[in-house]
Design a protein around this nucleic acid. Structure first.
Lengths: 218, 218, 218, 218
DNA sequence: CATGAATGAGGATTCATTCAT
DNA sequence: CATGAATGAATCCTCATTCAT
């Protein structure tokens, strides 16, 4: 998949296909790279224009303000980040025994999100770096998380708790521990120590074992 | 402990006591608050001056550049963050059976770091928000981590692995899983969902149980 | 010749024609006036902008730094100051008897430079005022002087010394005395006592007589 | 003569002896050096304080403003520059045949001023660099020049013209040519090409010969 | 007298944004 | 649609000067 392709895919959530001019894509690419590297506030629109190979004015033809440009990156990233949970059939799949065990479910999520993070890493960096500074993003994240991720996750957890597969902790704690364990790997792997020589498959195996043991019903 | 007190304590690692003038403290306090809230790049020195109740020029009398002001916050925070591991007697305590089980050790670290995070939260936010944008900070963090935290942690893990208490995974993985689990709680508790109603003791209990089960030798 | 015209002419040495926008010219004019009057260091870019009738930012769109603006004035002035000596045919003209006597040559230079100084006086003031403070300018001046002015001047002097027209002093001394005498007039006339009532033609006559007598072979 | 000594001598014109504290001298020395090197406007009082080894406030205890400090350098330098002409007996000496020929007079002035320039060069640089930017200095210079230098010089010239020793040009022109020739040497020797290897005695000889021939009655 | 912390106006420069071409 | 010159507010930082110690 070439560069432009992945961006278009990332952007699918925002607008209909076909609306993205070449220059617009170039601008987004440049902005993602620079925001990821230096942060939104420390990146100037003129730098973005230079890296994108367009005139400064062109940026503002496509994005009314610099903030709009940030949101055009961050919002699709947020949606794509939780995409599996946004799919209508997602929870259903679980109950219809597509995933016999919680471990199967976790493995499925892991693999799916691993591919996602690898592909969209710079945009994800931007998202997590900027969420602390922009209330709109934080609000949106909370809404999405509560109404989609949490709700569905809860049902899934309860399903496997009823099956007696996982420990009877409060659902919130199970969710948190699951996410923390998976996301902790991703953070270490891609953000904090990306240069360490990771054996991704082995580390996934260890981490999932750890998670399953941790949550196992004694 | 009043506001100035904790800052002086945080700064202990940087310089000798007594060198901190009242204005200098005021400036640091204001800078920490604002950097935590809006980010370093988006905070202007004039805002800091206003909030600190000093003239803008006064900032530059105490900190040669705005970047120096950031480092005066971030470096002590980095050192204090890993303070237990910097203490010479730290690892020794473990081997001399001050901590009979890995769980005792984890609980000790947890409590110690819990107090630390609660007290210095804004400075810690600044640290983690800015580490992504400033190579000096990242470099310093890596050095400290490798030479102090990792080395001592490793010995501790190996000690309990030899005692047959915890699983025979690679030390790196055990360290990562431990840190990820603890830090994951702190991140959720203080950064991502600080407004959720947490029962800190109960959640600590759950998390430590999870960690111990996850790492238990089967 | 109107104001803009002479500036464009002065600038010919720096870049190709046609590249000078109206605002750029306005900025240069304003800068020359103010630098001449108050000196480079004591003139603020906001004053220049005001006098030029442009926004302060516009200055920096055309000249990356204030120093660049100075050099955009000083370098062309340096080149134009020694322009006759830069022309390829210049020395040749002398040997091909365009100037039968040293006095003819001196008169030609005098008239040519008199027109130049009158036209470009403010820029020349800036040049001589700032050369003391900026090493780049001094270096450039020395290079130009040694490789162009001195070399050609030397041949001319030797030519007339061989013809037995002027005294057999070291060439360096003859050059210095000639320049000193001519430049001394210009300095007194235009820099030190511009308000005195000068009879330029008479004073030229006296000065050239003085110079010729001073250098005459006894 | 040590450093402080010459400064005190230079300052003699300004105030009575004994009033100059050590710090005051240090400040003046530092200011002269820095003003000569970077110019008045580009030199900060804090730099001067540092170089002088005193606190910033100390400068303002001795000189009410930075400008006062400049004038404390420039005014004595102006007076000392024309010191011979300020001496009451100066012109008289000429008429009483202390100087038989104009050449004797010129030689005497030359030697006297040569020593002066060598000793006070940095202060003289400051004077000539700043005179262009400060009207008070220019005014003072003009007054001194007209009332002392010019008046006495005029009588001397007329004296030697009457004796038939020098050409019957307008006195102003003779003065200008004399000064220009002497000052031209000093400018070249000390300001423009101080690094060239000068044979000062030989060059003086040549220059005075040139001057005498130039002014000789034909 | 000397100090140096404190000031706040002013410095050069950058920036997001606009708009005529 | 795209451009890039123009803007002027805002940025970080410096400076001459003051004043309590």
């Amino acid at each position: 998949m070439n560069e432009e392709q992945w961006l278009k895919e990332l952007l699918k959530f925002n607008e209909e296909d076909g609306k993205w001019s070449e220059k617009q894509i170039k601008i987004l690419e440049a902005a993602i790279e620079m925001f990821a590297e230096k942060g939104y506030a420390a990146t100037s629109t003129s730098e973005i224009a230079k890296r994108a190979g367009v005139a400064e004015g062109t940026i503002f033809r496509h994005y009314k303000t610099k903030k709009d440009l940030l949101l055009a990156i961050v919002m699709p990233t947020l949606f794509q980040s939780v995409a599996p949970f946004l799919a209508k059939e997602f929870a259903k799949e679980v109950f219809e025994n597509q995933y016999e065990h919680y471990e199967d479910f976790v493995r499925a999520v892991w693999k799916n999100r691993y591919e996602f993070v690898k592909k969209y890493l710079p945009a994800i960096r931007v998202f997590w770096q900027e969420i602390a500074f922009h209330d709109e993003i934080k609000k949106q994240f909370e809404t999405i998380f509560k109404t989609h991720v949490y709700e569905k996750f809860k049902k899934i957890i309860e399903h496997f708790q009823e099956k007696g597969e996982i420990v009877e902790l409060p659902v919130e704690s199970v969710i948190r521990l699951t996410i923390t364990t998976i996301a902790g790997f991703f953070a270490a792997r891609f953000m904090i120590m990306p240069d360490y020589e990771w054996d991704d498959d082995a580390e996934m195996e260890r981490t999932i074992q750890f998670l399953m043991n941790g949550l196992a019903k004694k």
